[in-house]
């Protein structure tokens, strides 16, 4: 059989085959292969953290990745920016009748490869099939479980005036790549998503310095929205310098054509970090040592306590960066 049918989701023989031939084949490990209704996990030392995310990206294959890679990176990264060492993922699949099985295989292979790189095991899973026209080919939900070591405490760090804002690379690549690959725009570009695992980079950052005050990954809503959340939550003014923002020309250009500000485009493989001023250099150097942090740059600093984000424009003017307001386009991740 070449395509997914409703029978692949009915709990019967075809579904068992699908799970065995594809899910277990690519993702199998001692925990998943317990094959019970629930999986037992070995005891861990430290505090557990968990997060969940659903992925509905359109198109499901895009330059620089696919929905499978994204579903692993997204959840692993959410654990990583909380200072956690990721351990397990669950994998919930909602498949649309008519999806080609070859595509599903490619996606699950991608899930398995990315999970292996991240050092996480797929611990449990679920598969459902919805009738044709009721889903976007494939939707994936992943729930992650990680552990935080005793020496890491990001929650209580106090952000102060003078702290530096650091980003691990160019801004908005994922959002721009997805937009460019949407058929309705009829634009062609060499843009690639930055979709990547961040757990090694965050571990490197946290071990390089005790001056890390905040870590996050600027996904939906982009850099501006992520910084706005920090400004609101920590009641600080953050000022960015337009001149030093790392934005690729292609991203800038596509934004210009479509009327979209790159500051609001998602990244899926960038760490945004607030660090004490005196530690900034050490942090930047540690980030640059990582293969996915070579484009690291200090892009601004904390300048007060007004709960807002400002941008000093190239001309010397000031612009307030508000959180994302309008719907750019649905289904970017």
């Amino acid at each position: 059989m070449k395509t997914i049918t409703l029978a692949h989701g009915n709990g019967g023989e075809l579904m068992q085959e699908l799970i065995k031939d594809i899910i277990y084949y690519y993702c199998g490990n001692d925990i998943l292969l317990q094959q019970d209704d629930a999986a037992y996990l070995p005891e861990v030392e430290g505090e557990l953290v968990t997060t969940t995310d659903s992925f509905v990206v359109d198109p499901i294959f895009f330059p620089g990745g696919d929905i499978g890679k994204l579903a692993v990176c997204g959840t692993v990264n959410d654990l990583a920016v909380n200072g956690a060492h990721p351990l397990y993922l669950t994998l919930g699949l909602i498949l649309e009748e008519g999806l080609e099985i070859d595509k599903l295989k490619r996606i699950i292979k991608s899930v398995a490869e990315t999970a292996r790189k991240a050092g996480v095991k797929i611990a449990a899973g679920d598969t459902k099939v919805v009738p044709q026209g009721k889903g976007g080919g494939i939707y994936i939900n992943t729930t992650g479980l990680g552990v935080v070591g005793p020496d890491i405490n990001l929650q209580d760090a106090k952000i102060e005036t003078g702290d530096k804002i650091i980003i691990s690379g160019s801004i908005g690549d994922h959002g721009a790549a997805i937009l460019a690959s949407r058929e309705e725009f009829e634009v062609s570009s060499a843009l690639t998503s930055d979709c990547a695992l961040l757990n090694n980079l965050t571990a490197q950052i946290l071990s390089s310095s005790g001056g890390i005050k905040f870590l996050t990954d600027p996904t939906r809503g982009g850099l501006a929205t992520a910084l706005h959340e920090i400004a609101q939550q920590k009641q600080v003014t953050i000022n960015l310098e337009e001149e030093i923002l790392p934005i690729k020309k292609e991203v800038q250009g596509l934004g210009g054509i479509l009327g979209i500000d790159p500051l609001y485009l998602a990244s899926e493989g960038r760490v945004l970090c607030v660090a004490a001023a005196e530690e900034a250099e050490a942090v930047v150097n540690a980030m640059k040592d990582s293969p996915i942090g070579t484009g690291t740059a200090v892009i601004g600093e904390v300048t007060g306590d007004k709960s807002r984000v400002c941008l000093t424009t190239n001309l010397g003017g000031t612009r307030i960066l508000r959180p994302l307001q309008k719907q750019l386009l649905p289904r970017l991740c």
């Binding site: 424009t313 190239n314 001309l315 010397g316 003017g317 000031t318 612009r319």
Partner: peptide
């Protein structure tokens, strides 16, 4: 004009 913050300049 608003984006470059020109009015205040």
């Amino acid at each position: 004009i608003s984006k470059i913050g020109l009015r205040e300049l």
